[in-house]
């Protein structure tokens, strides 16, 4: 008898609660913007945070709320994705060139001699907080892989032969997570040229020429030869370091041959000497 009573009571309670809940839900219904769902569906749903928002949903809400889409950009989806979003919302979108992460250090084991042994926690952020690193260069890559851990797309890996990270062109979405993770600010997002072609100064050492050269064979010594060679005024020299403006660079390839330390790297360009080298990393003479 007791069991019947229990079942009846619980059933009645359940039905009653369901009715109340339904009534409340109808009365206080929040009318969501259906466009948010549509926009979200058009996004890559990587939730990487590369756009500056916490996730794709937040970005979709921001897109719907925004006047126009000029300041909003999903680096993972790229232009195609933003065009789709613009179609859904009927808003204007700015044209942006796709970007790619580049690693501005070539200080491999062969190029940079070790000056000390690091034995603390294996994280670049910790090493950078403790000292200038285990080589003579206090600017270069620490080689402990904070960028690899930060990448959600497995687009960066550590090359065991060089001790340096390398970017896999096709996987990199330019979300910028590695840029933020690197305590040395070595990684930069640059324009992804046609066929992933790009030319950049692969060094951020700001020491004076002889000091930089002593610590690393492929350091930029700030000689300024590339600045003179560039016909488009894309290269500037600041703090003993050359920098190629990727907006101005037209990949004319005048700068790399004149660099005495081979600090300027040409990537994926039809190699004049060795075509098969993937990273275009040249060994120093």
């Amino acid at each position: 008898m007791t069991i019947v009573f229990t079942i009846v009571t619980l059933s009645v309670l359940g039905i009653l609660s369901a009715v109340i809940l339904y009534a409340v839900a109808q009365k206080f219904k929040v009318q969501g913007d259906p466009r948010v769902d549509q926009v979200e569906a058009a996004l890559p749903l990587a939730n990487c945070g590369g756009c500056g928002y916490a996730g794709c949903r937040n970005f979709a809400e921001a897109c719907v709320a925004a006047e126009d889409l000029t300041d909003l950009y999903c680096p993972v989806g790229g232009q195609a994705c933003m065009d789709a979003v613009a179609d859904i919302l009927g808003k204007k979108v700015s044209q942006k060139d796709p970007l790619i992460a580049v690693i501005r250090c070539q200080g491999s084991y062969a190029h940079r001699a070790k000056t000390s042994l690091y034995d603390s926690a294996p994280a670049c952020s910790i090493a950078a907080s403790l000292y200038g690193g285990d080589t003579g260069c206090a600017y270069g890559c620490l080689g402990l892989g904070d960028c690899v851990k930060a990448c959600k797309f497995q687009a960066i890996f550590m090359n065991p032969d060089t001790g340096l990270p390398e970017v896999i062109d096709d996987k990199c979405t330019a979300c910028g997570a590695c840029v933020k993770a690197c305590p040395r600010f070595i990684i930069e997002l640059r324009r992804r040229g046609p066929k992933n072609r790009r030319i950049f100064v692969s060094c951020i050492n700001q020491d004076k020429g002889p000091v930089a050269k002593k610590s690393c064979a492929v350091a930029c010594i700030g000689c300024g030869l590339c600045v003179k060679a560039c016909p488009f005024e894309a290269i500037t020299l600041k703090n003993n370091l050359a920098y190629i403006d990727h907006e101005k660079c037209r990949l004319c390839r005048k700068c790399a041959p004149v660099c005495p330390t081979h600090a300027i790297v040409e990537m994926n360009l039809p190699e004049l000497k060795a075509a098969s080298e993937p990273a275009g990393v040249k060994s120093s003479a």
């Binding site: 403790l130 000292y131 200038g132 690193g133 206090a138 020491d207």
Partner: peptide
């Protein structure tokens, strides 16, 4: 000139 100090930076 910059000189390395105990922090390991110049």
């Amino acid at each position: 000139d910059p000189v390395k100090d105990v922090t390991g930076y110049k």
